[in-house]
């Protein structure tokens, strides 16, 4: 399958006074069209950092990210922004919604920013898929943390982006709604051919993916494909690798 997004020896350093934190030390990562990739790793291993760089939200200290073969470092800020708007959906770990907009307006945001007039039925169907059709006119402060997260997922899908990047999208959810979210992402990758990259700490969530990438100290340490697990369940396979890499 065609590679949609890839990184080439991607590095990210944070400078805190004299101290330099190496958040990513040369990561090579690739995801194909329609592929669902989970990223796992201990806290502070660079998962969120990698996701931010994949989304073009931050500048790398070295290396490059290519989306459909186009290098981020070659793009102007406006080109990169338009790319984010039209090709990338992002679900943050925290704070996802604008407080003054309703759920439906938050979902439609990438389209309205793009100057489009979103089709209300499109927005409603997305809200239905995340189980919030009856909350469309609610403001974020009238929604629970999990509900807010689900609105963010609907927003990430609204522009039918090539790639959706999700930072612990199920972290705040009970297992039932968590499962619903995973099914949704799963379906989007199968049916719309969208690429999903999801950071998670939960091996059951990771089991929904086609492939799991393990990060440690800013480097990829392992990678398992869940297409063929040789008799074991996907969950068991992920758990086994997790033990292997010391998670």
């Amino acid at each position: 399958m065609a590679v949609v997004i890839e990184t080439r020896s991607l590095r990210k350093q944070y400078h805190l006074g004299d101290v330099t934190v190496e958040a990513l030390r040369g990561v090579d990562f690739a995801a194909a069209q329609g592929e669902f990739v989970a990223i796992m790793g201990p806290s502070g291993s660079g998962k969120s950092t990698l996701l931010h760089l994949l989304g073009g939200l931050d500048s790398a200290s070295g290396g490059d990210v290519l989306l459909d073969g186009r290098s981020y470092t070659q793009m102007s800020d406006d080109e990169l922004t338009i790319t984010r708007r039209r090709q990338i959906g992002f679900i943050f770990q925290f704070f996802n919604l604008l407080p003054t907009l309703t759920a439906a307006e938050n979902v439609a945001l990438p389209l309205t920013i793009d100057g489009q007039h979103p089709n209300p039925s499109h927005i409603m169907s997305l809200l239905e898929q995340v189980g919030l059709a009856d909350r469309k006119d609610h403001k974020p402060h009238q929604l629970s943390g999990g509900q807010q997260q689900r609105v963010a997922i609907a927003r990430a899908l609204v522009a039918r982006p090539k790639i959706v990047l999700a930072d612990e999208p199920t972290g705040n959810l009970d297992s039932q709604s968590g499962q619903a979210v995973l099914d949704l992402l799963r379906r989007a990758s199968r049916e719309q051919g969208q690429t999903m990259v999801m950071v998670t700490h939960d091996h059951r969530a990771a089991a929904s993916a086609d492939r799991v990438v393990f990060l440690k100290d800013g480097q990829t340490v392992n990678m398992v494909s869940l297409d063929d697990t040789g008799g074991k369940t996907r969950t068991q396979t992920v758990a086994a690798v997790m033990t292997e890499v010391g998670l």
Partner: peptide
């Protein structure tokens, strides 16, 4: 800050 960052993240250009 956070709202501005979020808007930038979902695709609002600097000019916008």
């Amino acid at each position: 800050r956070r709202e501005i960052g979020l808007l930038r993240a979902v695709g609002a250009t600097r000019a916008q």
